[in-house]
Design a protein around this nucleic acid. Structure first.
Length: 913
RNA sequence: AGGGAGUUAGCUCAGUUGGUAGAGCAACGCCUUUACACGGCGUGGGUCGCAGGUUCGAGUCCUGUACUCCCUACCA
């Protein structure tokens, strides 16, 4: 099959994804023909995207990383499962659907709960299929047969099971506490769902007159005057001499004229403001605690929509911020307002709608976290779970060791309904796994289920095992749990990762995953967060449309290291698109030179290097190729270039594999980029042109080497760029109908690494580069063929003699004269390194000034290097302290530099004349 | 306030156990050489934030310091 002039991603991507699907290659049940039983498993459950909307670059990054790992493991002989799914995303989804309703002039209350839920399911259906399309566009090799949704029946069973079990154990409780209340979403949210933002505001001083001592008053400072309506005390520090006499007395709450006590509490900071604090247990977390300590009454002055309630007296019905203005005005009028100072305070905002959170007294369900956190801390401390990058382990500990109880109930309609029923007659609460019809206490049948739902993250916490069938003892659970890697963004380590670890340990007795890989945030080219309002969003589908999925994937992998934010731009993606083109064109070159090549003539290696890995050498079923580059079956080793590229190829397999094993995906990508482009294409492909035109035997060996190294490189690249590698792979002989995605990931063959070939090739490269530099600096066009003389020690001369044709081609020479010593030629350019000297006669072409400048520069560099080496060697300290190998190295350097210097000086003399 | 991270070439970043500073992009110069101009070849560019210390030797280890960023918590 021939390849077109340029790679066309669009058609190829669609075609090959369908090809993979048709063959069910991503299901762990798939076993290639003739493949031995696979014993090792590798599992990733996808961080489920919210059904709220479409996927962004953060998802693209996450899922590309996961796909690379999964494809690599699948190719390496693991029974591999990547389980896809979606999250119902309670509050987020409810909000978008409510917004839609509001645009239609209605709301959920008019619709009623049942109709509303139907409406959300419609939304879910629509977005689910679009999200699935996106995952396919990214190239994700997920097993669609195991697709899950957090509201699936199975997962809902798991949620109820966990809730009931924790309730029965006393770890879930219900009670009236101060919670974060969003007056717009009309629900409680957990501490983690509150974002903090610094805003400039004021600090108002308010005077509280003493009840029985006219004229005297206490002054407090507050950032929230409106909450004074709910004050139930003033507090001072017990040691504060200024206020000793006031403790136990009453002051009059202005505006409402309610007497409230002055209490003493050590929480009060004597230095801040006037050292006197108003206590509003109904609207401030610290005041709530102080209030509890002193058994103060709790007065809530606001309704759930953020307006003042009946406890606010004359202010009833006012919005909380309007009320603040009014109160300040009124206090001023009564002369009870003191100083007003500018003040920066951090306000809590609802993560979902940015409304200012109102701490509010409310009856909610909570989960006790401390006992759950302990084993989860241990699991990371003892290394059962490794978090990458590892510094996040400290952050994890820091949070886990100070963990607070988790408010898990939400006043929403979209989510897992809390499995608690209230008897309307005896008020007994029954928590049960299935619907309760009769009160177990009084046998009444008038029962009402708790209207609230659970925090979305509650079901997410169970994701690694609920998706595999838990609480049922399924085959999947047995086979794929614990999972291997949890790959997700560092922004949800507390929301999700920590909770999965706690729940996994609690309910399965096992860690949910061995590794946590945290990726960074995808930002725009300036490092700013992508957001619709800034207009700097790059839609992954647009990137794919413009450059292809592979280009985007390679970019994300190259730029994104563990825990590191990455700056994405179209220019970057474009750059990697060029790389794909390079790969493509190398394939075209291969095709043009395949004539007479028959892969069948090249037998399998007699021994598979790792017989236990499935399909080593035979993973493609009937395909007889994919031979290892072992020395055994090499009757003819080929040219230096052949030996060199084989050596390099095997070194690259080794280091790429190591990088992947250590989750350094960007390193793996960089190495492959460099190897493919700057070694394989720049040097080997060029040199292959010679041997391909040489003797039939040399042609055959080079064809074989080229084919095998190139084909193997495709397999190395496939996890990162699955589409183009499949497209090219399918075009190669003997590949039709078989997929590279289930071919063996290359296994290094140490015997194929030829140290001599590596050294020899580096000599060829050094000489070639030196000639090219001279050519470049003298601006001699490539069309001008040069005649070059080289002198060198005998062994090196012999090498150059053998590889003469290669040097002539690469450096574009007319002839290469090899001598043991060079006679001075007046009009010539010279370069030297150690004992090797290069001389290029340039009569008529040479620019003497240029050559003089060039030589002087080189001499200067050489001299400074040499003097540094000499200084070291003559330093007594160095000679005494440094290890002998370093001293030897330095001596060698000195010798080489002085030889070079000598030759360069001679050349300079000639130029000056 | 507590915790974490960063500061290396114009930009984005590598620099694994201390042994003469690297890549990609951008810039500049030469070139349509038959895989590729989405290309080839070459060049310029850094006192590695600052100050000390350990060491024969520090971008790399230690201490201090400046600035930047992130997370958690939040003093009214």
């Amino acid at each position: 099959m021939e390849l077109s002039k340029g790679y066309e991603p669009k058609a190829a991507e669609k075609k090959w994804y369908q090809f993979w699907l048709d063959r069910n290659l991503f299901s762990p049940e798939f076993t290639p023909e003739h493949a031995p039983k696979r014993e090792k498993t590798f599992t990733i459950v996808i961080p489920p995207p919210n059904v709220t909307g479409l996927l962004h670059q953060g998802h693209a990054l996450s899922y590309t990383i996961e796909d690379v790992l999964v494809r690599w493991k699948r190719m390496s002989g693991f029974k591999t499962l990547w389980l896809p799914g979606k999250d119902h995303a309670g509050i987020a989804t409810q909000n978008v659907v409510e917004k839609e309703l509001s645009n239609e002039g209605t709301d959920r209350h008019k619709l009623g709960r049942e109709k509303f839920e139907e409406r959300v399911w419609q939304w879910v259906k629509q977005y689910s299929s679009r999200i699935e399309e996106q995952l396919r566009a990214f190239g994700c090799s997920v097993d669609w047969n195991r697709d899950r949704f957090t509201l699936d029946e199975g997962l809902s069973t798991a949620v109820r099971e966990v809730f009931v079990a924790l309730y029965e154990e006393g770890l879930i409780y219900r009670g009236e506490y101060l919670v974060n209340w969003c007056p717009r979403c009309h629900t409680a949210v957990s501490d983690l769902e509150v974002d903090h933002e610094n805003r400039s505001s004021f600090l108002w001083e308010i005077k509280y007159p003493l009840v029985k001592n006219s004229g005297e008053f206490l002054t407090v400072a507050t950032t929230r005057p409106e909450t004074m309506l709910g004050d139930t005390a003033l507090a001072v520090h017990p040691d504060d001499k200024r206020y000793k006499g006031f403790i136990g007395k009453n002051v009059l709450l202005p505006l409402l004229n309610r007497p409230i006590p002055v209490i003493a509490d050590e929480y009060v900071d004597k230095e801040f403001g006037a050292g006197c604090l108003k206590i509003t247990p109904g609207h401030d977390p610290n005041d709530f605690q102080i209030g509890t300590r002193h058994k103060l009454p709790i007065i809530s002055v606001m309704s759930h929509d953020g307006t003042m309630n009946e406890n606010a007296g004359p202010y009833k019905g006012l919005d909380r911020f309007k009320c603040r203005e009014k109160i300040v005005e009124d206090l001023k009028r009564l002369d009870l307002l003191g100083e007003i100072k500018p003040h920066i305070l951090s306000v809590g905002l609802c993560q979902r709608c940015s409304t200012i959170i109102e701490p509010t007294i409310s009856t909610q369900w909570f989960m006790k976290m401390e006992s759950l956190a302990k084993p989860a801390i241990k699991a990371v401390k003892n290394g059962d779970i490794k978090i990458l990058p590892s510094n996040w382990e400290k952050i994890y500990f820091n949070w886990m060791e100070n963990i607070q109880d988790w408010c898990i109930s939400r006043q929403l309609w979209w989510g897992h309904r809390i499995p608690a029923w209230y008897c309307e007659e005896c008020e007994k609460i029954t928590v049960a796994r299935s619907s309760v019809k009769k009160c177990p206490e009084c046998q009444s049948t008038s029962l009402k289920q708790d209207p609230d739902v659970l925090d979305t993250w509650f079901s997410s916490a169970l994701w690694p095992f609920s998706t595999l069938g838990w609480p049922k003892k399924t085959k999947d659970l047995e086979e794929f749990y614990p999972t291997s890697v949890m790959e997700t963004g560092y922004d949800i380590i507390f929301f999700w990762v920590a909770r999965m670890i706690m729940m996994g340990l609690k309910f399965t007795g096992k860690i949910p995953f061995s590794y946590v890989y945290l990726h960074g945030m995808v930002r725009d080219e300036k490092g700013q967060k992508m957001s619709k309002s800034k207009g700097n969003v790059i839609d992954p589908l647009d990137s794919i449309n413009e450059f292809g999925a592979d280009a985007l994937r390679f970019t994300l992998i190259s730029l994104g290291g563990p825990g590191k934010d990455l700056k994405l731009s179209n220019e970057r993606i474009q750059g990697y698109r060029y790389f794909l083109n390079k790969i493509w064109n190398a394939a075209r070159f291969l095709h043009m030179n395949l004539e007479g090549f028959d892969p069948k003539r090249h037998p399998q290696p007699r021994r598979s290097p790792q017989p236990k890995a499935w399909g080593a050498g035979v993973s493609t079923g009937r395909s007889p190729t994919l031979v290892s580059l072992a020395g055994d079956d090499y009757k003819c080793e080929g040219s230096l270039a052949d030996k060199w590229i084989r050596s390099r190829y095997n070194q690259v397999i080794e280091s790429v594999t190591k990088a992947l094993e250590e989750f350094r995906l960007n390193d793996a990508a960089d190495q492959l980029y460099h190897f493919t482009w700057h070694e394989f294409c720049d040097w080997y492909l060029e040199l292959s042109k010679l041997s391909l035109q040489g003797s039939p035997e040399s042609r055959m060996v080079t064809q074989k080497t080229f084919f095998e190294v190139y084909e193997g490189t495709l397999r190395l690249l496939h996890p990162i760029i699955p589409f183009i590698t499949e497209e090219i792979w399918q075009s190669l002989p003997q590949r039709e109908g078989i997929s590279i995605s289930v071919a063996t990931f290359p296994i290094p063959e140490p015997k194929a690494i030829d140290k001599n070939a590596l050294t020899d090739m580096s000599h060829i490269q050094t000489v070639t580069n030196a000639i090219r530099t001279i050519r470049g600096e003298h601006r001699i066009p490539p069309a001008t063929r040069l005649s070059v003389s080289i002198s060198a020690p005998t062994a090196v001369l012999k090498l150059f003699e053998k590889e003469e044709a290669g040097i002539i081609m690469l450096a574009r020479l007319k002839e290469l004269k090899l001598k043991s010593e060079l006679a001075p030629i007046p009009h010539s350019a010279t370069d030297a390194f150690g004992e090797v000297e290069i001389q290029i006669p340039l009569e008529g072409v040479i620019n003497f000034d240029e050559e003089k400048k060039r030589l002087e520069k080189e001499i200067k560099k050489c001299e400074s290097d040499l003097s540094r080496a000499e200084a070291k060697l003559s330093s007594e300290k160095f000679m005494k302290g440094a290890p002998t190998e370093i001293i030897e190295q330095e001596k060698g350097r000195q010798t080489e530099l002085s030889e070079t210097l000598q030759k360069l000086n001679r050349a300079l003399k000639r130029v000056i004349g």
